[in-house]
Design a protein around this nucleic acid. Sequence first.
DNA 1: CGTGCGAATGGTAGCGCTAACGTAGCCGCG
DNA 2: CGCGGCTACGTTAGCGCTACCATTCGCACG
Lengths: 363, 363
Amino acid sequence: MARPSRRGRGAITIEDVARAAGVSAMTVSRVINNGSNVRESTRAAVLEAVEQLNYSPNTAARSLAAGEAAHIGLLYANPSASYLAQFLIGALHAARSAGVHLVIESCESEDADEQAEVTRRFATSDVEGVVLPPPLSESIPILAELDAMQIPVVTVAMGSARAVGLNVRIDDHAAAMEMTRYLLELGHREIGFIKGHPNHVASQDRYRGFCDALNEAGLDCEKAPIEQGYFSYRSGLIAGERILSRANPPSAIFASNDDMAAATISVAHRRGLNVPQDLSIVGFDDTALATSIWPELTTVKQPIAAMAEAALELLIADLRQRRSGTPQKFVERVLSHAMIIRESSGPPPGARPAKSRKGAKAS
Amino acid sequence: MARPSRRGRGAITIEDVARAAGVSAMTVSRVINNGSNVRESTRAAVLEAVEQLNYSPNTAARSLAAGEAAHIGLLYANPSASYLAQFLIGALHAARSAGVHLVIESCESEDADEQAEVTRRFATSDVEGVVLPPPLSESIPILAELDAMQIPVVTVAMGSARAVGLNVRIDDHAAAMEMTRYLLELGHREIGFIKGHPNHVASQDRYRGFCDALNEAGLDCEKAPIEQGYFSYRSGLIAGERILSRANPPSAIFASNDDMAAATISVAHRRGLNVPQDLSIVGFDDTALATSIWPELTTVKQPIAAMAEAALELLIADLRQRRSGTPQKFVERVLSHAMIIRESSGPPPGARPAKSRKGAKAS
DNA sequence: CGTGCGAATGGTAGCGCTAACGTAGCCGCG
DNA sequence: CGCGGCTACGTTAGCGCTACCATTCGCACG
């Protein structure tokens, strides 16, 4: 139960491991890193020594010696703030294990020139690669600028349009289908839909998923009450109002994100409707808002932190490859989402109680 | 306009600066770091060279050579998620300029033993110091554990109880007074208050600020409609409901944080009250929720990112001092807040229109 | 005017790690 | 059997910076 692990002087080094394993430091390094050209027995011995001494390499020394990337940029523009928090948590994890520093900068402007300007300043400063979470992952000016500067980029949740570079996402289409099927299973036949921001590929994927599930059930998606939203609470207020003031309002509403779903709940309450008894409302994303309102939202959970981690890993791997001369062309990683069933959804009014479907299902 | 700044091999080093300034690398190092025992003219020359070459020190080499802290821990427990995002942004800034890595870990449990356990594992792992944002900054078991392990800690927003160690906060009392005075100025005489979690020193400070402002105006705080809340949306729902179902409800409600204020708005809407025409509602914190609902909240803005930055700076300075044998006893930094006036507040119904008071006022 | 002493600077030796090359040992081939 | 070529390691030389000590210089003092 020795614990000489704390950093600083006196920590255990690669030399200690080498001595314990009866090999040279270089061999230990090889084992830890890639591991090419090491006999199996040697590798095992080294790994055991590592285990026993609880050795963890000094990232500072490592990046110094390797002359490696020290800084990864992260350019963000206020997504739902809780999205950012989750994302940063994941990014930090990955950054730490890779021994790189995260450099973050906000880019709130919607103006193309200004975005380009911010990007240029940012990229010139110090970073070796850039991570672009939504909504910036869909910003043409930023992507163009970064491309021109030859800076590796990994986009997150960028639909699937751009078939170059690195991308991490979930399957929005499948997720939206699942959610819609769930509402159908509950017995809903009239289901409203609030679309997301039209510029985002993810919006379209979600909408198509909704339609496909409806069609699959023999319903006509063209006839469903559909309104355009823009991912903001405010736009959800307007869209929800429109849907609920129709002559024959639906018994369920699927909003393309949690903010708009929350807004719709607020509209429903104002109109004296109970959720979910009179009206089911579901969202998408599982941001903190989903559980901070009442009733808590049934929604689709994106593995945000995991996506951030994956993004960084991808980027760092690419950086390594580039250094050794083999840049990757196009890599996409699709992570799995999950349905989270909470209190804002239930069978339609007047339906005979359906078997409740509990828990989460991964895709 | 040369730009040899990108990291990796071939970047400009301290030697380049030394050569340009006509001194040794050692002197440059001294200038950059503390700067003791360097003649003024020499310092100027070095700084000019630094400027001209756009030199920035290699943090990896620095921490390697100095054998310095490489990892600062950050233990969090789901505060309002947007608080976390802001906090992380600030922390990252500071971490990067200091060249340390942020290691973050969540500690959601409320159980004392479990908290201690998590803390122990966390602290044993790797970190040289720990940052504790609220609500963990008030957790006795965590503080005790860290203390026992002799790990430096900086708490954030911890009221002002503990007169040892490092702390960063705002003046909750003054801020609450300001907000209350603002409502009084608008003409409100019946003002409700929703208290924060009773365990938090900040809650008490805010409540006392509210009372003091009321007393100052010749009103009796004992008679005001006051309900206990717990910082959660749900608790706000209950407290808001209670206040509004009183015989003579107030014309304004001051909630101790934004979540509870948002909940109160929701309750008001359900009861057919318009905000702010029929009822003014104000919050505290200026989290993302404040602007993502409608109407947007009048609230007190905490400089969250700046607080995080300050916290890290304090901690890193302390770490340095400890290494040279002079630990600091008690350092507190109080940052300034700001009133943010938005749409959820206005004159009481039936009042003659008061001059609108716009913009933000720093304290 | 020598001595002492502190202030200002330089030289040296690493921090822990990894490229890059060197060197054994082994195999198969002509 | 000698040579090329491979695999599995070890050796050497730093990466960029700072701790530590040595050195120089100026200046006050007896």
